[in-house]
Design a protein around this nucleic acid. Sequence first.
DNA 1: TTGACATATTCCTATATAGGAATATGATGT
DNA 2: ACATCATATTCCTATATAGGAATATGTCAA
Lengths: 121, 121
Amino acid sequence: MARATTTSDVFNAVAEIRRREILSYLAVRERPVGDIVVTLRLAQPSVSKHLRVLRDVGLVRARREGRRMLYRTNAAAIRPLHEWTETFERFWGHQLLRVKERAEAKAQKFDSTKSLHKEEV
Amino acid sequence: MARATTTSDVFNAVAEIRRREILSYLAVRERPVGDIVVTLRLAQPSVSKHLRVLRDVGLVRARREGRRMLYRTNAAAIRPLHEWTETFERFWGHQLLRVKERAEAKAQKFDSTKSLHKEEV
DNA sequence: TTGACATATTCCTATATAGGAATATGATGT
DNA sequence: ACATCATATTCCTATATAGGAATATGTCAA
């Protein structure tokens, strides 16, 4: 079996870095395709194809305005991704705590020795 | 050009649903490969291959214990993903607010009409 | 209608899977 | 050394890209 389709879910859709860049760009406000082409320096057909993928999974919405198509990011569609990563938050929290503790331990050691050597840091 | 490698970054690595399942399973505590095979009902070679990918991008750590290899999720490696999704939080926040407002407006309408029809909800 | 502009689709190709089957590597106990 | 358990790798194949080039579709203006 090959890899899952890019349009099979949000995870696969955002795997491509260009699509992530497009999403960030379109998050602030809607933009025509041409703006994406210019700003992100991508070939026009490439942009259209990426937008197609993003649209298929609901990550962007589109509307026509004259000759142009205006796209905008549908941020809500990113939530599942956010929520999935959040389930791991408590685990890296532990590690952060450890880092903090070590930093404090080191600071204390620094105080007790009154050392000013850079190597201590 | 083809798609980016699954090991090119965390985004590509977690695009595969099996790998996400493995990460969730290994987040709580370290486990030998065999446990993953049994619990997630995957073929052993398949699990080893997925673990290889996850390991290459730093999403899991491994250590040997006798004949077995114990794997655990390195939650910190998921942070970049979390942080990226977080940049969109303020955008879906707006939408949530709107949903909430509409819900309240609807509740008020419900009160004023004293309707009990299911269709209202 | 015709031309120009804006975007989308099609065709092509090199590449990277993911899963199944078979096999290799590694570690343990006897 | 050998058999066994545990895991990793290799080989195979069908499939799905992503990008470039060419072309199609859609819209407006004269």
